[in-house]
Amino acid sequence: MPEQNSNKNEWPLWEVFIRSKAGLDHKHAGSLHAIDAQMAIENARDVYTRRMEGVSIWVVESKHVHASDPDSSGAMFDPASDKIYRHPTFYDLPDELTHM
């Protein structure tokens, strides 16, 4: 998440998410400055979809995004690493068995 020095006259920063085509999820594309949500969407169209990269845009003010702490990501994501039985390849099955 961009860490902004506060600057009174600067327009707020927004994060832009774009759905590239119907059926796919919105993906983070980048950020931009705008005075309000409507302007953020219009600017996002001009900045991030000049070549039909999107069919839908979400914007959210950067200050509303909360993120996990990268320095504690070890502890944060550790519980998953010792549970390999959650993956299908953990199970020993005969080669003849197909379509499973």
Binding site: P2, E3, N5, E10, S31
Partner: peptide, 13 residues
């Protein structure tokens, strides 16, 4: 500019 802003400098700066 957005990429640079993630490093803690503002657009106006």
């Amino acid at each position: 500019y957005s990429a640079a802003e993630t490093l803690g400098i503002t657009r106006d700066e």
